[in-house]
């Protein structure tokens, strides 16, 4: 299992990284492996606001559909439109080109409350 040491995590397998004044979010290597081939991604339009823990999108694999959860309260700046026709990018490069959303946080300090790479590794290894 690959872990991005610069990201922080949710138990539900979303990663979040600082990106200038904003944040970028995707799903972990553990999650993409468990889901299998990703075949559909539904992401929000820019300007939408979500509270921490609320569902901002849906990801569907050959096996099942899963909600994507907002790691921090914030407003969508952009979604990764490349994924619409090339969902396999999520499987191939989940911490890079397979990102989902870029957002500005209501409170950037909320990032500090997320799971560290080590904490997330322990959580996901138990699954």
């Amino acid at each position: 299992m690959k872990i991005d040491q610069n990201a922080k995590y949710l138990k539900s397998h979303e990663w979040t990284r600082k990106d200038g004044d904003a944040f970028v979010c995707g799903i972990s290597d553990h999650a993409q492996k468990a889901l299998g081939d990703i075949v559909y991604v539904d992401l929000p339009a820019p300007g939408k606001h979500y509270k921490k823990g609320s569902a901002f999108g849906v990801i569907e694999s050959v096996k099942a559909a899963s909600d994507l959860y907002m790691p921090m309260s914030g407003t969508i700046v952009s979604s990764n439109t490349d994924l619409a026709d090339h969902t396999d990018i999520v499987n191939k490069d989940c911490y890079g080109a397979g990102w989902f959303i870029r957002f500005t946080a209501d409170d950037p300090k909320e990032w500090d409350t997320l799971l560290s790479p080590l904490e997330y590794m322990k959580v996901s290894e138990k699954e």
């Binding site: 299998g36 081939d37 075949v39 050959v62 096996k63 396999d88 499987n91």
Partner: peptide
């Protein structure tokens, strides 16, 4: 197996 390591789509 639902899939082999190759992956279902491939």
């Amino acid at each position: 197996p639902i899939q082999y390591p190759t992956g279902a789509i491939e």
